[in-house]
Nucleic acid binder design. Sequence first.
DNA 1: CCGGGTGAACTGGCCAGACCAGTGAACTTC
DNA 2: GAAGTTCACTGGTCTGGCCAGTTCACCCGG
Lengths: 253, 253
Amino acid sequence: MNKVSFSRAVPVLTYERVVEQIEQAIVSGEITPGQHLPSERELMVQFSVSRPTVREALRVLQSLGLIASKPGSRSGPEVLSMSSEPLGRSFATMARIASLSLTELVQFRIVLESSACQLAAALRNGEQLEKMQNAVERMEAEVTNGSDSFNRADLDFHASIWEASHNDLLKVCGQAVSGSILNLMNERMERSADTAGAMRESLERDRAIYSAIASGDSVAAGDAARSAISRYFAEYLDEDGVRGLRALAPELA
Amino acid sequence: MNKVSFSRAVPVLTYERVVEQIEQAIVSGEITPGQHLPSERELMVQFSVSRPTVREALRVLQSLGLIASKPGSRSGPEVLSMSSEPLGRSFATMARIASLSLTELVQFRIVLESSACQLAAALRNGEQLEKMQNAVERMEAEVTNGSDSFNRADLDFHASIWEASHNDLLKVCGQAVSGSILNLMNERMERSADTAGAMRESLERDRAIYSAIASGDSVAAGDAARSAISRYFAEYLDEDGVRGLRALAPELA
DNA sequence: CCGGGTGAACTGGCCAGACCAGTGAACTTC
DNA sequence: GAAGTTCACTGGTCTGGCCAGTTCACCCGG
C-alpha cells in the first residue's frame, strides 16, 4: 500500500473512555439491570481518573437512561433496565428543534398507530381487549362531563392498543410522537377539540377501531386507525401533507 | 379542593437546572444552531454555580446532541442543529439491552420502510428518482463482484428512498432501526446473505420497489417493500413474529 | 505599507482535596 | 428481642489549580 492516508489525530477524552467501558459492561450483560456499579470513589481508583471525570461519565450514562444514582445509597449507581424515557426525550427535542413539521409528525403517527392496530387485531389477548372495552365505556360515560376525564380514558384506550401490539419499540415511538404532537398543538393553538361534538367524533372512531380489533380483522383495524387520525388532523396540514396522507391511506381517496 | 395531595419533595439537582435553562434557551430559539454559548467560566458566574456543575450540565447537553464543545475555541460551546445521532444511539442501546427482539425490530422496519416507499412514490422528484436508478444500476454491475460494493449500492438505494419520502423523522428512525438490525444479525450469526444468489434476490426486489416508485404507484411500492423485507427476514423469526408479519402484510398471505 | 510569525490571553480537559446532607447498617441500649 | 443511636460512607457541590491547545492581536521584518 503506497497510499498512506493519515487521519485526524482526534484526542480521545478520558471521560468518554470511562463511558465506553461502563456502557460496554452493561450492553454485554456483564452487569445486568438491578445490579449496582461501584461507588464513584471506587470507580475513580479502578479507572485511575479523578472524581469529576467519573462523575461526568456517570452523568452521560444517566442521561442515556442506563444508570441512576441516588445519594446516600450504600451500593453505588444502579443499572436500569430499558426505559423509553431517553428515546422519548430525543423525539421531543428533535420535534421542537424546528426541523420537524406537524406534517411529518402526523404522518409518522399514522404509520405507527395503524400498524399497532393491525398487530393488535392479530395478537391481542383477552385481558388487553377487556382494557380497551373498559376504556371505551369510560369514554362513553364521560362524553357529557368535562373533557379532562374523557381525554384520560382516550389515552388509556390508545395505551392498551400499544400494549396489545406486542411491540415495545412501536409502543415507545408511538407514544413519544403522540406526546410531541400534543405539545406542538398546545403551543400553536387553543385546543379546539374539546367540544362535545369533537368528543363524540373521537368516540365514534375509537369504537370503530375497537370493534375491528375485537373481531380480529387486521385490515379493518389499520384502515380505521388511518381514517381516524387523518380525519382528525386533516385541517391542520398543508397541501403537501394532505398529498402524503393520501399516499399512506389510499383507501380514503 | 379539600383533597390536598402532597407529592414527593424531590430534591432538584442544580446541574439539572442548568441543563433545563440552557435546553429551554435552545428549543425556544433564543439561541439558534451555529451560535455559541458563553464559556464555562462565564456560565459559572451567570448561573452562580461552580465549574464542575457547569461541566456536568454541558456533558449532558452534549450527550443529547444539542451542543458540542471544542477546546481552545474562543467562543464557547457551539449549539448544534438537529442530528439523528442521539436518536440512533438510543435505538441502538434499546435494541441491545436485550428487551428488543429481532421480531420487533423487523416489524418496525417493515412498517417504516414500506411507508417511506408509499410516500416516495407520491412525492419523489426527478433528482431522487435518478439517484435510485443509479444505485440500482450499480447493484446490477456489482452483483458479480465482491459483496462489499454491492452492499454499498444497496444502502445508497435505500437512503435515496428515505430521502424521497420527505419525512426526516421517518428517515432517521428507519435508518437507525436498519442499523440496529444489521448489528444484531452480525452479532448473532454469520452473514449468510452474501452469496451471489442472495444478492440476485435482493436486486430483484429492489428493482420491483424502484419501478413501483418510478410509476408513482403508492400501493404497489408499499406492497413491494413489505414483501421484500418480510421474505428476507422470514427465516429468522419465530412463529409469533411470522403471525405479526402476516397482520402487517395481509397481501402476502 | 503589508504580510507573516510570535506570544499572551483565553479555551476546555482534568485533577486534588474538601465540605455537606443524606442514607443505612451496625451497634448499643433498654 | 426490639427500639433508638451512632457512624462510616454515599452522592452533590465547591474551591483552586494545572495543562495543552487554539486564537487573535500585536509586532517585526520585508
